[in-house]
Nucleic acid binder design. Structure first.
Lengths: 247, 247
DNA sequence: GTTGTTGACTGGTAAGACCATTTCATGCCA
DNA sequence: TGGCATGAAATGGTCTTACCAGTCAACAAC
């Protein structure tokens, strides 16, 4: 009720220039409030789009955009020819790689377990699916890393690019997106760890680079098993190195 | 480029009744992939809505709905009179299992690839780490599922609880949190798929239950390999079943 | 009672038209 | 030359109308 009175007669015509933000947003908010409040419960059918148009005194395009928001939030589902229905609750909307304190080795273990699992799987897929262009990009990152080491830099940026390039070679956007999130979080930890130590551990970098080369070779050969194995070894060692940084 | 050629002139007009799921979803997916891949970077301006219309050969309503999804995902922001811009999404903050259109089998494939990877890994870990209490909870879910089938219910809630209990047996909060998110998204898709079909496919449930039992046995035995194998087979079949729903 | 058909209704999409704002090149003025 | 008004073009936001294909229930025929 308050809704319709709030939205009808809208402001678009009252020359004063009243500020109203995005009609679709308001409607989406209102509908989602009705759902949350229980006025519309699971399985219920919403009024038809055309009915909502008259209720809110807006065009169908606006209503559709509002509904589209609710759909992408998973609050409702539309069935062509039938109607729009309220779907089940529980918005586990997003996943966050939880911040864990660098000093807690147990937590580090848990985080690495997930990281290793996914990156190893991604590397295996990449070995099967990588294109020549992918290989070129990976090699570029590899050489960049080489150069960084020779320049006495830490090369963590290049390291990141190497892993990133491999994941992109899976050509699976879900893997890419998830690994971006994971690696970005991991990098935070590494940075934290490195800032806690003075020495450069440059000697470790050679080991890192060898492991990278092994991964690259497996990818080049398209050998899934070898790629997975190399990635697994690399990440296992990486977590050991992180512990050294933390020591 | 490949994009436009993939989507232009699409199947909507070829009377054969080709299945093409939700144009807006496809376009949103494509644009968000371009952003993730770096083809469009932060601050860049997207082509105008009218340009996108011609590029994708769809109406403006479709383009606007696609953009509205990206907006609510925080990937882009629109400025009236100016254009739509890529916002500073920091992949650090969160990961979202992106909505993929239920009828686009290619996308489904990609999503399942990630889902299978993670759940199989989780099951393997659970086989190694499950406590007697974990087993009890898993068995309870298994029996609940049995009961649901006998009651001619779909039992998708029980199904979810079964998987949930397994993942919890990893005792790794990151796995638990990620799988919760993934499975919640997957359930939405399954619900959508089922809402698009009339038949109940109750016969399939027996197969599901057999696969569940195999997983449980492996977990009970603490046999990591068998658990991973059983989970892999189950999820592979699950994705086949989803395709049946979509058919 | 069962079956088959019909027709109203629904979401999905298309196309064209305004509006208010932003943007930028133009040209005027100091 | 430099700064400032100006106006046309482009853009997102909204509205309108229209058609399509799917759904679903009432109704007619058997």
């Amino acid at each position: 009720m308050s809704v319709s009175s709030r939205l009808t007669h809208d402001q678009s015509r009252n020359g004063t220039g009243a500020r109203n933000g995005h009609l679709p947003d308001e409607i989406a908010q209102d509908l989602s409030a009705k759902i949350a409040s229980g006025a519309l419960s699971v399985g219920d059918r919403l009024p038809s789009e055309r009915d909502l148009c008259t209720q809110y005194a807006v065009s169908r395009a606006v209503v559709r955009e509002a509904l589209s928001q609710l759909k992408s939030d998973g609050l409702v589902a539309a069935r062509a020819g039938s109607g729009v229905y309220v779907t089940q609750r529980d918005p586990t909307t997003s996943f966050r790689f939880q911040n864990f304190s660098v000093s807690d080795l147990g937590r580090l273990e848990e985080a690495m377990e997930l990281l290793v699992t996914i990156e190893v799987a991604a590397t295996r897929i990449a070995a099967k699916r990588r294109t020549p262009e992918d290989l070129k990009k990976i090699k570029r990152a590899l050489i960049g890393m080489e150069y960084a080491i020779a320049s006495d830099r830490l090369g963590d940026e290049e390291d990141y690019q190497f892993h990133q390039a491999i994941v992109e070679a899976t050509h699976n956007p879900h893997f890419i997106s998830l690994c971006q999130h994971l690696e970005a979080s991991a990098r935070n930890i590494i940075r934290q760890a490195r800032s806690n130590t003075k020495t450069n551990h440059a000697d470790l970098m050679d080991a890192v680079q060898d492991e990278h080369k092994a991964i690259y070779k497996a990818l080049e050969d398209g050998d899934e098993e070898a790629a997975a194995e190399a990635a697994s070894r690399h990440l296992y060692n990486a977590s050991k190195r992180i512990r050294i940084y933390l020591a």
